[in-house]
Design a protein around this nucleic acid. Sequence first.
DNA 1: CTTCTGCTATACATAAATGCATGACGACGA
DNA 2: TCGTCGTCATGCATTTATGTATAGCAGAAG
Lengths: 298, 298
Amino acid sequence: MTTNEPGWDLYRSFLAVMREGSLSAAARALGMTQPSLGRHMRQLETELGVALFARSPQGLAPTENAHELVPHAQAMAAASAALRRVASASNHEIRGVVRLTCSEVVGAEVLPPMLAAFRRQHPGIVIELSLSNQSEDLLRKDADIAVRMLRPAQTALVARRIGGIPLGLHAHRSYLKTYGRPLTVADLQQHALIGFDRETPALRALRSRLPFSREDFALRTDNDLAQLAAIRAGFGIGVCQCPIARRDRELVHLLPDAFALELDTWLVMHEDLRASRRVRLLYDYLVQALGAYVGGQA
Amino acid sequence: MTTNEPGWDLYRSFLAVMREGSLSAAARALGMTQPSLGRHMRQLETELGVALFARSPQGLAPTENAHELVPHAQAMAAASAALRRVASASNHEIRGVVRLTCSEVVGAEVLPPMLAAFRRQHPGIVIELSLSNQSEDLLRKDADIAVRMLRPAQTALVARRIGGIPLGLHAHRSYLKTYGRPLTVADLQQHALIGFDRETPALRALRSRLPFSREDFALRTDNDLAQLAAIRAGFGIGVCQCPIARRDRELVHLLPDAFALELDTWLVMHEDLRASRRVRLLYDYLVQALGAYVGGQA
DNA sequence: CTTCTGCTATACATAAATGCATGACGACGA
DNA sequence: TCGTCGTCATGCATTTATGTATAGCAGAAG
């Protein structure tokens, strides 16, 4: 068996098939046709010398082999995307694409006004904003800049500590008017608490410092935006970033002395990107803007 | 300008053109033809919206833009190669390809007998051995296993300390017979010393502990294999790994008390590969074999 | 049971990429 | 100065890949 090297396009097709779950769906996603992708998969199988799919009328069932290949194909996709971003303009130009990743709360509540202001200064820079609580891989260049809540361990990354975002218990005035205001930690047991559903590793580290556990919650969700929306809707009492609550006159900070945590915040980018003017500009701007946010000016 | 996403095959062609320096050379390397690659490059330029080459009758001159894209294209190539290695056999099979990288001396002098023994045990495993003094990037999966002389900083890498390989001053008996044997460090000044040419960062860290500098050397080369060959040829006195010299009865260890350094040695692999049977087998075998080598049994 | 919708596989016409042959240009050496 | 060797660009025939249309199959819903 003389197994030639497969063309790289086959990997792109393969990744689409794995992601979409069927030849037809992948064809739609890629703007190609189903027979074409079918031929691609067959060719990939013969050239790699490995069975990738079990064919069936209800779709393709990926073999274990196929699953093992996915991370590498994704690495190729990430590199391809990074290449296109770099090619979007010369390094020294204030123009082109910058990809940014952060948590859902930060991306939905904190960054938008900052990015709006940045865009007024640099209208030539296109911003891609990826919200995801499991951080994308900067080393693999899934993004150019990341706002992280943990100090990054890797060398080859430029990391700058922004500060600690204060967290606090908050409720809407309408809720407090109906159910009263808790004056002690013990009072909280009588209230509708909003909290997490499954324990994440990040939470587990904090658990000993939290005055309540999963069983105490009247609304359990791991989506931070849903928690925030529930607080705003007057569902009950929950934790959110103090600077966000401070912008809303209807939200009240409860028991500030009894409950106080800080979210350590870092701005991170890949070392190589220091040479890129547009990435550097956004990075420096975010250092300043997030610094002000943490400090309480924003 | 509506710049479609370029097919990934174009990146493969681009990388070949950048590596080979001309369309024709790249065509030869890829088993394609020059007009085809020419069209690829033109298409890539239009689809990325960036000028990549300045055409001339004596070849293509890459623009600055083109150079910036190379690392990303290389990342794609590395991922593609890693994918093919994974596909070379199922994870649980004792069969397939494993890629190994190490320094030139280790690859040429230390590993070959070990790999020969390993192959007798596992004839189904194909080994790719890449000798390079600037270590390939394990995170980018340029290789599966690396023998390194520095503790790797990255998490996501499995690193195991093998031990310290003792270094010592050595000379061939034929040299000593002619020029005499140095009995003190001061005597060395009268001898033909073999040493480095340009200072590498690794050397600079050691410099304060070395009893000589660049100007003292009668033969200067940064190629460790050439140094070793010069010692064996009776050119003069140089530094080499004691276990290597010990195998050759004609090589004499000089001034063992005055000059003693150790090369810290690590065996490293990517975390993901712990699940791969063949990689794990070679890793475990090398831990044992290199351990014995450092300990002096080999 | 039938119909509808999803999927894959196949046959055939069409569109696209490739290879071949050639031409033009510049560098190098006799 | 001329010939050679290298490069890239272009026109044309051919191979290759793609799209279209169709058939077949399995499951969900009426």
